[in-house]
Computed example of a mutant assay.
Amino acid sequence: MASTCESDPIDDVVCTTQAFAGLQVKVSLQNGNLPNPSGVTVIARDDNYSETLKEIGIVHTDFVGAYERKGTYIITVSKNGYKTYTSNSIVVKADRCHVSTEQINVVLQPE
């Protein structure tokens, strides 16, 4: 993976080359069950930018994306048989090296 930032010799700031996700979305169903990830779509939008978040983890209920990309996002989560969830604005901030991951939990409601 390419370096996400460089060291600053003036302030002795040393950044890692690891890329951090700006967004992490945990999805569950109203009945408490974990959804089948193959049926869940999580999309993050920031103005003209749009990204489908990728599933991670053993139980596949976490979706991540917007790697090293600060911005103001609207998250949409959809699954057949459930109402589409749309978030309020989520602001992802960054320091000199990396973004700070914003985590949200989404509980999908049956249609």
Rank of each mutant, 00 (worst) to 15 (best):
residue 56 I to T: 14
residue 45 R to L: 04
residue 67 Y to H: 11
residue 33 N to E: 08
residue 31 N to F: 14
residue 66 A to H: 04
residue 58 I to N: 05
residue 54 K to I: 10
residue 71 G to W: 10
residue 58 I to L: 10
residue 40 V to I: 14
residue 39 G to R: 03
residue 57 G to S: 07
residue 57 G to R: 08
residue 39 G to H: 04
residue 38 S to P: 02
residue 32 G to S: 00
residue 62 D to S: 11
residue 66 A to C: 14
residue 40 V to P: 14
residue 35 P to T: 01
residue 32 G to I: 02
residue 34 L to T: 09
residue 48 N to H: 04
residue 47 D to L: 10
residue 37 P to T: 01
residue 38 S to L: 11
residue 43 I to G: 09
residue 55 E to V: 15
residue 55 E to H: 12
residue 48 N to W: 04
residue 49 Y to H: 07
residue 67 Y to R: 12
residue 48 N to M: 03
residue 44 A to K: 02
residue 58 I to A: 07
residue 53 L to G: 02
residue 58 I to S: 10
residue 55 E to M: 04
residue 42 V to P: 06
residue 44 A to P: 07
residue 34 L to H: 06
residue 66 A to K: 15
residue 62 D to Q: 14
residue 69 R to D: 04
residue 49 Y to D: 03
residue 63 F to I: 03
residue 71 G to Q: 09
residue 43 I to P: 12
residue 46 D to G: 03
residue 64 V to E: 15
residue 56 I to Q: 13
residue 71 G to C: 12
residue 61 T to G: 10
residue 65 G to L: 07
residue 64 V to A: 14
residue 55 E to F: 13
residue 58 I to Q: 05
residue 34 L to R: 06
residue 34 L to Q: 05
residue 66 A to N: 10
residue 46 D to W: 06
residue 71 G to N: 09
residue 72 T to F: 15
residue 41 T to C: 00
residue 35 P to S: 00
residue 43 I to C: 06
residue 42 V to W: 05
residue 45 R to T: 15
residue 63 F to S: 01
residue 63 F to P: 05
residue 62 D to E: 11
residue 69 R to Y: 13
residue 69 R to C: 09
residue 37 P to A: 03
residue 32 G to K: 00
residue 54 K to R: 10
residue 63 F to V: 04
residue 54 K to F: 09
residue 37 P to E: 00
residue 60 H to S: 08
residue 43 I to E: 13
residue 42 V to Q: 02
residue 60 H to Q: 11
residue 68 E to H: 03
residue 31 N to A: 13
residue 38 S to D: 12
residue 45 R to M: 07
residue 34 L to E: 06
residue 40 V to T: 13
residue 70 K to E: 11
residue 67 Y to A: 08
residue 35 P to Y: 00
residue 51 E to Q: 09
residue 52 T to P: 05
residue 52 T to M: 06
residue 58 I to P: 03
residue 62 D to I: 07
residue 70 K to Q: 14
residue 72 T to R: 15
residue 72 T to H: 15
residue 34 L to N: 08
residue 60 H to Y: 08
residue 36 N to W: 13
residue 53 L to Y: 01
residue 61 T to Y: 05
residue 59 V to N: 01
